[in-house]
Amino acid sequence: MNNCITLRQAQVNQKLRICSVGAQGELGRRIRDMGLMPGVEVTVVGKAPLRDPVALRLRDFTLALRNSEADHIVVEPVEG
């Protein structure tokens, strides 16, 4: 259960569930506005040519964020 990693460390195509979002202030709010909340399942679907930013697939849509922003998001791998 306690195999949490930050989103930056996640592999492409790995299924993940968000444990916590540590960002505060404007960044925290922007992340939440986009629906990145604890419990939400995400998959890293790609990385930009210079490996930053990363593209995330949520259930209904895709969004991009920088590695420095992904650092604030703690995730755990989901089986299956």
Partner: peptide
């Protein structure tokens, strides 16, 4: 720099 968090619309 402002956060990048951005939607990649289909």
């Amino acid at each position: 720099s402002t956060p990048f968090v951005m939607e990649l619309p289909p």
